[in-house]
Design a protein around this nucleic acid. Structure first.
Length: 276
DNA sequence: AAGTGTCACAACCGCATGTGC
DNA sequence: GGCACATGCGGTTGTGACACT
């Protein structure tokens, strides 16, 4: 498209950031806030590309970052989310407070991949490595969960899928339900469906007349039986489906989906800060 | 102690997407 | 609708630290 380069490479530093550069960037963002990354380097007196500044801030300097080792719970959460979303690191990171997509991506590549392999699972498909698959495995995103989640995150997508599919995920739990690293190899993979995830998806029936620009909160349509209003939708419409998977919540946590009158949709609304 | 291999992670790069004109 | 630009994302690379021989 003939786009101009994002920065003048001849006059920008590359490589590791110095303490002074970090201080300048932090000071500038504290004073002026994030944004305008392209002009930020010049304004902050940095000989860096705007992209580089953004990355440095997001991945390293942001004050809300949780540094340090990943916990076992985070490991499992990442594995579950990856099974659902694939390599959508930003979406995965959105569910892990204080973690960045880059951090999770690195952690996946260096630790979790190996962990899954030791469990006898394919890191990409989350299926047993020796499983015979007559047809190529479906993308891990299932009914385009990633796209749906992405759309939900971006508060848009008035276009909704015609088909609502339960986002059941082959968990192969039997293969890695223990920590001894043994899989159930040899046996035909038992399809377990993990209902312990909450995807913040927004899906509705084809007839749903979406009102654009909802509040910046997340919505979920789910099939959780605890949803209120599941039985109130008109029988003339296909049943709305609640897909609340209690991701990161105790399984006993009731979902808070509510039927929206005349819209045949369940919404699960949660403050953003809860997701961070 | 030196050389080599491996790991972990920060940073870069190219492309995709969103937005305003 | 098309273009240019800004930003975001995911894959890849570079490099320092550490382990091993």
């Amino acid at each position: 498209m003939g786009r101009s380069p994002c920065c003048e490479k001849a006059h920008t530093n590359k490589g590791a950031w110095t303490k002074e550069e970090d201080q300048r960037l932090i000071a500038y963002i504290q004073a002026h806030g994030e944004g305008c990354w392209r002009s930020l380097p010049k304004a902050a007196g940095l000989l860096r590309c705007g992209k580089s500044c953004r990355l440095r801030w997001i991945n390293y300097l942001r004050p809300d970052l949780k540094r340090g080792n990943f916990t076992e719970e985070e490991d499992e959460l990442i594995i579950k989310l990856h099974g659902l979303l694939g390599n959508k690191w930003s979406l995965i990171a959105a569910r892990l407070p204080g973690r960045t997509d880059n951090e999770i991506k690195n952690y996946w590549n260096t630790h979790i991949k190996r962990k899954l392999l030791s469990r006898g699972l394919d890191p990409q498909t989350h299926r047993p490595l020796n499983a015979v698959s007559p047809s190529p495995p479906p993308p891990p995103s299932l009914f385009s969960a990633a796209a749906a989640a992405a759309a939900a995150q971006k508060h848009e997508s008035p276009i909704v899928p015609d088909v609502i599919v339960a986002a059941a995920v082959p968990k192969a739990e039997a293969a890695y339900s223990t920590d001894d690293g043994h899989s159930s190899g040899g046996e035909a993979p038992t399809q377990h469906y993990d209902l312990d995830l909450n995807l913040d998806l927004s899906i509705s029936l084809p007839s749903y007349n979406y009102s654009p620009r909802r509040s910046p909160q997340l919505e979920t349509v789910s099939n959780n039986s605890t949803c209120t209003g599941a039985g109130t939708a008109s029988a003339a419409y296909a049943q709305s489906v609640c897909l609340c998977y209690h991701l990161g919540f105790q399984s006993g946590d009731a979902c808070t989906c509510q039927a929206i009158p005349n819209q045949h949709i369940f919404r699960y609304i949660r403050p953003l800060e809860d997701a961070q």
